[in-house]
Design a protein around this nucleic acid. Sequence first.
DNA 1: ATCATTATGGAATGTTCATTACAAAATTTT
DNA 2: AAAATTTTGTAATGAACATTCCATAATGAT
Lengths: 200, 200
Amino acid sequence: MARPLSFERDHVVEAATRTFLRHGLHATSAEDLCQATGLGRSSLYNSFGSKDALFAECLGAYLTRTRERGEAILGDTARPVRDRIATLLRLIASEEAERVSAGEPRGCLAVNTVAELADDAEHVESMRRVDEDTAARLHLLADVLRVGQAAGEITDQVSAEGLAAFVNASIAGLRITSQGGTASDRLEDIVATTLRALDP
Amino acid sequence: MARPLSFERDHVVEAATRTFLRHGLHATSAEDLCQATGLGRSSLYNSFGSKDALFAECLGAYLTRTRERGEAILGDTARPVRDRIATLLRLIASEEAERVSAGEPRGCLAVNTVAELADDAEHVESMRRVDEDTAARLHLLADVLRVGQAAGEITDQVSAEGLAAFVNASIAGLRITSQGGTASDRLEDIVATTLRALDP
DNA sequence: ATCATTATGGAATGTTCATTACAAAATTTT
DNA sequence: AAAATTTTGTAATGAACATTCCATAATGAT
């Protein structure tokens, strides 16, 4: 009944996400987004409403994608808990390494959003989403780690919640370290050392 | 021979640093800096040249202060290496906890600068300073950890350089986690777990 | 007390930015 | 092929921003 869009929304969100990851929300202009997505200003505003709304959509998609990936790995009850955590961390390290060769920006949109928007009164909603996502991630991690503790695969010197916070912080540290330009071998060292902390 | 400044440069840098830590470089306006420091626009530009120059000075002062504090703790050769690392991590965790009660912003200017400026062509110089600082920090950590390995206090399953990268990443993770609003008990869990990774 | 020098307050400037308005173009349905 | 509807390109708008200007005020040296 009318003219269709000349682009696929997902692809636009993906391109915008890369731009936001590279430059952050504040340093990304509407012009930058047009450049990155190939859309004109009108199309962009027509389809997404505002820069902030597009950012919110990118963040939402990123969080969902990342959460689902994590759940798939951590929820694989057939495998030992330690292996699941190891797989998750190694996946992140190798993903960061691939970003380098692909010329894509390194780092994590959730981590960068905390760094950029934690105290930004105008973007409370985005931070709330990150907080919710973090809470869910911590919950899942703690559940899995608790199973590992019961099986004797994981130390019980620290509570499952404490270990979950540690793993979560390690991931953030890994991503920031990668964004700072650290070589992939070193990222693997970090992963290996992180795993040592969980040993009984 | 002329009218003196009505403020102390260090205090202004300190106030500006808090503002930059809270909002980042891009989201901090000249007006925000005037508000935070109590200076007028003219005084600010007269004394610091530009917003970017003031940021560079804040970053430099922050890096120096942080590095010196780390060196004092890590360089205390009278103490076991493990204790020195523990002291450093606990100091960071408690500093973050104090920030909450003091109403000051949490997080780390160096970490946030990596997140915000890693791919910013206009601020290569600031990133270079952070990179240099990180390299020096890693070097010191590796030296200290190597001593700990030789003394049997620290695992030698991972190279001293790898362990240094791990400790550095842990600190970044700790600071981002704190900035995300994590309670101080959990920060202590993270520290305790991080230390476990270094045990032989 | 006066001069030389510098700081300061407030207005002004030019730019960048997010967003909107409008007219033209495109596409599906009839 | 024409009508209805929506996209899209271009130009416009108004606000925010970094920075500068200028007149005035303050201070130390003489």
